[in-house]
Computed example of a mutant assay.
Amino acid sequence: MLESFLKVIGEYGNPVPRYTGPRCLVERLAVGGCDLCQQICPHEAITIDARVEINDTRCTGCGLCTQVCPSGALEFDVTAALGAVREQTVPERRSVDGSVDDGAKLVCSQAGESGKTLPCLARVTSSLIVAAGAWDTPLELVHGDCADCKLGGPQVPQELQKVVEQAQQLRLATGRPAQVTVRRGNGEGAGGEAVSRRGVFGSLFRSARSVVSELVPDQPLPFVDWSVPQERVPAEWQWRRRALKPTPPPQAAVYWPAPVVDDKCILCPVCANVCPTEAIAREFAPDGTITLHLDLAACTGCDACVRSCPPDAMALQGEWAEADFAAPVLLRDSTSV
């Protein structure tokens, strides 16, 4: 028992999200920058100068900063929560009392209920809900008393609702919305004084028996190798695309905010330079033609290119045809300038 518990604590030992500088709009020098993570952090754990800095003694790992980060510069491991939901989709999975449980459940650590447990439901992302829809699995999300919680805070239900709405917009193209329910737990949460990393560990030790069996493992993410193009795209957006099942028809409207370009474009390199995932490529052909291409699946819709465009020639388009994901989209070329 002790060995298993210590193993879980080891997996849970680093609640600070991974920061990938090249994806950050601040480091990309996008016009207007971005301070969403700093604004939403309930513990004043984030400071921004030339880059984002996280105070790991203040950070509780609630996940709010990762929910609002428009480019995936801040992230936790989404595969752990996805795996926890997937485990609960096994046919004829039976609960302790012998009844058939045909849905999945994720519980906030402060909700006072049993179930696969996340530190805070601010860890829930759109890809998780999109995937639950793909697996045709009803998903129940149970939070604690957020108004009085010092691990996440009162913003959590509102931000979680935004995540659910975004996921449902994505699933519209499949014709099969996700079955998701959000409710408050029946137990007593942890209010009172602010919770630090020490407080998180204290909470775990007080409920060691349930932690061993229910806590979703939380391991630090490895360093992003920027030389590998696939790693430039955050796992969250990769899973949003991967979990868009059943595959929409070729001309189906898929909700995926991404830039389009109008006639004011001068084919300068600014949009490509500020793109946090390098989804926009400015290329030169042997005949001297300049083109701008967009890798739609790599675009996070962060709006950096739109805000930074010198001639104000870009805007976000909310919906794209499924067929647009098959190959790079031509945004502009010098023959049309």
Rank of each mutant, 00 (worst) to 15 (best):
L64R: 02
L296W: 04
G115Q: 08
I266W: 04
E278Y: 04
V182E: 06
W256C: 14
C120R: 00
P328I: 15
L294A: 10
L141A: 02
C275K: 06
P42L: 13
V260D: 12
V90F: 12
L106W: 03
I40E: 05
D287L: 10
G83K: 08
A194D: 09
C268Q: 09
Q166F: 15
T66F: 00
G115L: 05
P257R: 08
P234I: 14
V130N: 09
K105A: 00
G115N: 07
P138F: 08
P234N: 08
P17N: 07
L29P: 02
R197N: 13
N273M: 12
W237V: 14
C37F: 13
D97H: 07
C24N: 02
I266V: 15
A194Q: 11
E113Q: 07
L221G: 09
E27M: 12
Y19L: 00
D262C: 08
T335E: 14
A131D: 13
V254P: 08
I129F: 08
K105V: 11
A313F: 10
V212D: 11
D218P: 03
C108Q: 00
D102M: 05
F205R: 06
G83M: 02
T89N: 09
V52Q: 00
G33Y: 14
D263Y: 08
R198C: 10
A285W: 06
V260M: 07
P15H: 02
D35Q: 10
A258R: 01
V211C: 12
G144E: 00
S210P: 07
A285C: 05
E165P: 01
Q39V: 07
L139H: 03
Q230H: 11
A235T: 15
V8G: 06
Q39M: 11
C299R: 02
L172G: 07
E11F: 02
G112Y: 10
V52E: 00
A258Q: 03
V96A: 09
S95E: 13
V212A: 14
L139F: 01
G192R: 06
L330V: 13
R51G: 02
P269G: 07
S114G: 06
W256M: 12
E3I: 05
P276D: 05
T47M: 04
T79C: 05
E214T: 14
P15D: 10
